[in-house]
Design a binder for these strands. Sequence first.
DNA 1: AAATTTAACAGACCGTGGTCTCTATGCAAT
DNA 2: ATTGCATAGAGACCACGGTCTGTTAAATTT
Lengths: 197, 197
Amino acid sequence: MNKRTQQANQTKKRIIDSARELFVERGYYGVTVEDIIKKANSSKGGFYTHFKTKEELIINMLPMVDEAYTSFSQSNKEYESVNDKISSFINYVFVMMEKDIGLEFISAIYSSQIKDLTTQRFLIESDRVYYHVFNGLIEEGQGKGEITKDLSAEDIISIITTCIRGVIYDWCLKKGSFNLVSYGNNLIRMMLNQIKL
Amino acid sequence: MNKRTQQANQTKKRIIDSARELFVERGYYGVTVEDIIKKANSSKGGFYTHFKTKEELIINMLPMVDEAYTSFSQSNKEYESVNDKISSFINYVFVMMEKDIGLEFISAIYSSQIKDLTTQRFLIESDRVYYHVFNGLIEEGQGKGEITKDLSAEDIISIITTCIRGVIYDWCLKKGSFNLVSYGNNLIRMMLNQIKL
DNA sequence: AAATTTAACAGACCGTGGTCTCTATGCAAT
DNA sequence: ATTGCATAGAGACCACGGTCTGTTAAATTT
């Protein structure tokens, strides 16, 4: 890596780190891009060479999510059935949302993802680790005869994911006034019943 | 009604009408508040005495939705079962979203409703006609022994509504690239299976 | 080594949603 | 009728996300 990109990466990192600290202090909407670049000793020009929008910052702040999914899929924990494993995976998703990311960030992401037609919709990028891990689970379930083959793995993932998003959206709407994990697990369990054999 | 409020109401109507026309022409995000007040021969001050935000305009533009729900509930159409009636109601919701309101408006509403903690979240106002009609249907179903009483009507409505919102949110995410009505009916049917007796 | 291209960055600038202040007028109280 | 008050409205102004242009230095080509 040459000096040029090295410096650029440092700047980018400085911006992300500053943003993270400020967000923790004052929340996403309590922090302006101006604040961030001042703290990072950068400039508008600097900021927007590294990020297309302010929201893109959030995405750069969540590599831990994909790491968590990866580590879930690589863990050797034993489950009674694939269905249990799937439930556990979905539970994991909700726990992470509630505990690690938190209401304000989730709301900001979910809001901005559909704000206008130009935003980059990373939630539905097909190479997300989430889809990959989920797909593995469903196919395993179908292979072992635990899950219906009337629907393709793709369709099943689509349906369950839609429900998960519904739960999360509602959680945002109701400002976190219900327990995401228990409500979510409950609702998804009902849906999973429909795809079990 | 005195002259004062009369004039105010006229101004408000002028703004709403101008906004509607402009939105139809150029879409929600293609129209600025400036455009609207110019067309309505009003001013910023005028606009913001009648509306707290630009998004609030959308809400004022959707009384037809509640009217539609009301007329659904008052229609004398015969159904084979309450479950059929419920399916028909939900189908009606999706059809209205897709045909009458459209992707851009829905996206704008769904995005703005969770944007920050201060917005008025009319989607979950408990006096919405939607909730009222839906509640009547579920209670009828429970009364006639078609629907489980293991869950309260309130819980059932909450679950189904969460799923509906999930479908709509996904539809926005995917920029309307799937058929809202058929995907939605399908998914909800699966969920309804779980509450049938 | 000189010339040319490229990309990071600084910072002035812009557009738009929303606020603030000031004015005018309808209305109620006397 | 006069006075005082409340509020619809006009429009200057502000905050903030995002763009544009110019500069500098590293990288690449000759």
